[in-house]
Design a protein around this nucleic acid. Sequence first.
DNA 1: TATGAATGAGCATTCATTCAT
DNA 2: TATGAATGAATGCTCATTCAT
Lengths: 190, 190, 190, 190
Amino acid sequence: MTFVCGPRMRNSLATRAALLDAAVKRFTRDGYDDVGMRDVAGDVGIDAALVVRYFGSKEQLFEAAIDACFDGEHFWEGDRADFGRRLADQLVYGDTKPGKMQGLSIILRSMGSAKAVEVVQRSCVQDFMQPLTDWMGGDDAPVRARLMAGLLMGMSIGREMTGGPQTLSPEHCELMRDRLADLLQSLADG
Amino acid sequence: MTFVCGPRMRNSLATRAALLDAAVKRFTRDGYDDVGMRDVAGDVGIDAALVVRYFGSKEQLFEAAIDACFDGEHFWEGDRADFGRRLADQLVYGDTKPGKMQGLSIILRSMGSAKAVEVVQRSCVQDFMQPLTDWMGGDDAPVRARLMAGLLMGMSIGREMTGGPQTLSPEHCELMRDRLADLLQSLADG
Amino acid sequence: MTFVCGPRMRNSLATRAALLDAAVKRFTRDGYDDVGMRDVAGDVGIDAALVVRYFGSKEQLFEAAIDACFDGEHFWEGDRADFGRRLADQLVYGDTKPGKMQGLSIILRSMGSAKAVEVVQRSCVQDFMQPLTDWMGGDDAPVRARLMAGLLMGMSIGREMTGGPQTLSPEHCELMRDRLADLLQSLADG
Amino acid sequence: MTFVCGPRMRNSLATRAALLDAAVKRFTRDGYDDVGMRDVAGDVGIDAALVVRYFGSKEQLFEAAIDACFDGEHFWEGDRADFGRRLADQLVYGDTKPGKMQGLSIILRSMGSAKAVEVVQRSCVQDFMQPLTDWMGGDDAPVRARLMAGLLMGMSIGREMTGGPQTLSPEHCELMRDRLADLLQSLADG
DNA sequence: TATGAATGAGCATTCATTCAT
DNA sequence: TATGAATGAATGCTCATTCAT
């Protein structure tokens, strides 16, 4: 939803929020290198210089976007009983842009840029791995969290690499969903 | 292996091969966007324009590099009994650049570039997913191959995202290796 | 001297004076081009737009700064008998920023900007050359004033170009001081 | 002299030389900050990227320009007997761009840029002060060379600051020329 | 076959300034 | 009077690619 009154709203909070939103979308879809400040600014209808004013630099904008992705409730939270099934459904049948798993996409889309990787390493452990580890629980939580994160990200990549569920028969899709659900659930349960 | 005779070898095949080798290394380490034609050309000691002459464009060079990665014996081939253990060892304890798993790295490092993704989608199914599926065998081979590929790539990303095995205690490393080995082996066995 | 009462002084005269003071310091140290409105505003703790409001533009701020430099007693005034010695001491041994010779620095630091040169040409004759000429006295005062001004500015530049007195032996420093004192004194005396 | 055949001559030496020539002119006239890479490139009729290719960066282009200014015979060299008169003539009556004294102008025009000053300090001592000192001769050569350099640069600035010889009566011009000639000659003679 | 000069679009970032509040 | 959001032109520089030799 966008309010416009006159040439521009001149509401810094709204502009900043809109910018962040646009940045998350862009970075998620295109990765760090393929996103230009002009693109993000253009999405919101302002000049690129203002993006710099708000976030300092492209790198800092990216960092803010990553932080924003892992704010609030985490995508894995919810009823523990059908955890595996829930995520497997999303990974196999979900929209191209899962929304709730945006954080994953923004990470793997940006593994090709040295600068971005640096930011990811800085932010993701505490914003993503640590909360996930805490949520898993148990002595071997760090191990299971890593396997889980790996599986999630790997399946996301695989989706894009192979071209999505339409390249698999409906039966195989179902089979994959079930098997993936089992894998995830057993990792969650320990 | 590099032959030099006189000022230049004037052996276009050898130059082409050296170029391809350098390209694979670069793309594996830095991803599509962060690799420049000048870098690759410089590694071999020739002018960037010549790379264009040999491969047509950066995109085509990338495609050739991907193809080269999946030529010859595949990294998963070998004794089926200790398959899981073998790959798990590499994923947890292997060098930063696994060598045999270069193909995986080159893919995930390049998910951030629209052009590169296009190439990956074109090449990887037949060069990577299909052979893996064939090797797995069984009715559900397409499903298990996808889960396997996802797990492998995901663990590769996770490694870089978290900063490698040194961020985990030795005991947890061992535990992860074992659990990952089990997962991979059971996927391989069906 | 700075008065503060409440969140802001709401005393436009004091703010203006503080701004002018900051501008003189900045222009003296960094020259016209290397000084930003944001810098000057930041020194006083206000927004850059306000500087524009007070002075109209960067060019006008610069003009005001130059005028301020040549207000009040001129640096050459004082006992005429030891005039040469006094100035020579400052030029050879003085602090990097002579303070009293700020006007000279602000001029020579800004010879690289077309806009600034225009302002300098407009202001300096009446604010600097004319008073100096008057002070010198005699029929050939305009000539001697120019030679004097040239020598003063040239020695200031030379100082920075070569890196200050520490690049000369103490004996040579003394020698230069004496010779320069003679030169200046003979120009002053006619 | 400029040869053009077809779209461009594709003669790197000629292009480089033309570029350097244009850079010297620009830097002399406008100073470091006011010269853009695009300006210099435009003077020669090529793209700005090529300037970077040839010189590496703006800073290095500036350094090359300074070096070029002090190459070959120095402007003070020649018959020692009428040294003072020769230079005084140039300083008082010479063209706005003395040509032979370009090195002086390029220095004083660039005292307003931190980067440029750094380069000047690096290059000018050995390219300008040292040769001048050698030429002067005598135990106090370093001192006299500094005074001389200061006077020369100061008179150059003064010229621009006041607007040239036309702001002085013909008689005063002559007087200044003579007095300046004496000053310079006595510094040269020791 | 091979070189490297030349191109032009693209990049993030900085700047003085204007305008709405 | 004062704030700071917004602007847009300009900056130095990098890139894959093309062209003449």
